[in-house]
Write a protein that binds this DNA or RNA. Structure first.
Lengths: 225, 225
DNA sequence: ACACTATTCAAGTGATTAGTAGAATACTTG
DNA sequence: CAAGTATTCTACTAATCACTTGAATAGTGT
């Protein structure tokens, strides 16, 4: 029964694409929107040539598509089912791989206090003007799409933003919700930890922006440059 | 940021476990219930030692658990999230990998005529006694759990079963629904094709038994030996 | 304690993979 | 058309993987 073997070999091709940490990192980055090869190489910390080769493997596995515009080639995930797959992978890894659990818990010493806020709940509160939403991703990602009303404060600008806030008398009574790329992007954790140090009421949004977008919730775009 | 790298490396470990056709075949088999190493090696067509090593990789990735009983070691998937992951993998592979599409369509020349019947619809018709349900998996899998009221007719016994049926006057007016291991197990396809050749009204159940079970639908068990 | 069975472990081989470096391609701009 | 840029292609190396073989472990029945 060679049919069966062939079939599993095709599935394995997709699995193989998921078998490398750098590729997974790229995929999570691509889950947020399309990126050029050069952007991806910078995020993953790889040479451009190497990045290109990884991207071609992802393309071969059908996980990403690309589009050429002028000099640049923009890659993007080929469908929402890829995000579903990434989430399923994450769920299994979290639930079963002991090391992940340990890593997460050692990084987040006060994990329980950092309970994330559900997406729908945040949306309501934003509508009612009860929270300040913080997008801690880099400006270009923010520009490509963000939670409506969110303020873009990348990590390196957080201290500056806090100073400004304090000058203006502070908003300590106000709740702050931070989010970043996804459930395992540490930026939002860091920001929440810092805000709490300052005595502010801060929480993290469950998951991150790609999941927000996939859930069909409203997205605000702002063209940069 | 070594944390990020470590994290993706952990995810990649799960991806790596999914990067081999033989392991995927084993996982799909395990999705139906627990199996001994020897059973698995037979299904995958591998040596016992090789099978054992693959199983250890799956265990390391947290995809399967095992339980020792007497001489034998029984493996099983470590949770329903693994089945969700396998389905997500299948969806992506189907939607994007051109070769899979082609394989499926060349194997099923009359694909459109073989539209599967949804699970809930089958359940209703079974209750009303309108259909005969055929479980074309091997007896041991049938014994471990099957759709209520299903008749176990492994492929090699299909002809015999058809002969008997004809002797008894046939049930040509009756509809027959066949199912097997999953959406890509060919057994049910083969059976349906054969039944149709005989002029019978036959359809395939959507997906297979593991998905039926995961959907929370009733399961009938029968102890063998 | 003995043979017997199911599984795992350990060492070795050939194939595949991730990464590097430099050339080749394709498109834009002057 | 020439110079410049973003990406891909083509070797090449070191590491990893799938698989085989034979030995080791653990449990069963005599």
């Amino acid at each position: 029964m060679s049919f069966k073997q062939d079939l599993f070999a095709q599935f394995a091709r997709v699995g193989k694409a998921l078998s490398n940490g750098n590729r997974l990192e790229m995929l999570e980055f691509l889950a947020q929107g399309e990126r050029s090869v050069e952007q991806l190489s910078r995020v993953a910390g790889l040479t451009v040539a190497n990045t290109s080769q990884h991207l071609q493997q992802l393309r071969h596995a059908g996980l990403v598509d690309c589009r050429k515009e002028g000099l640049k080639v923009y890659y993007r995930v080929s469908g929402d089912d890829v995000i579903v797959l990434l989430d399923a992978l994450r769920v299994v890894a979290e639930r079963h791989v002991a090391e992940v659990q340990q890593l997460v818990s050692t990084y987040l010493t006060v994990k329980d206090n950092l309970e994330p806020i559900p997406r729908e709940e945040l949306l309501e509160r934003v509508r009612d003007g009860l929270v300040t939403v913080l997008d801690v991703r880099p400006p270009e990602e923010y520009a490509a799409g963000h939670v409506p009303g969110a303020v873009n404060v990348p990590p390196q600008e957080l201290e500056h933003w806090l100073d400004e806030l304090e000058e203006q008398g502070g908003i300590k009574a106000h709740e702050i919700v931070a989010y970043c790329r996804g459930p395992h992007c540490v930026l939002a954790f860091d920001a929440v930890a810092r805000l709490r140090e300052k005595g502010m009421s801060a929480r993290r949004l469950e998951d991150g922006f790609p999941e927000w977008k996939t859930a069909g919730l409203p997205v605000e775009t702002e063209s940069v440059e």
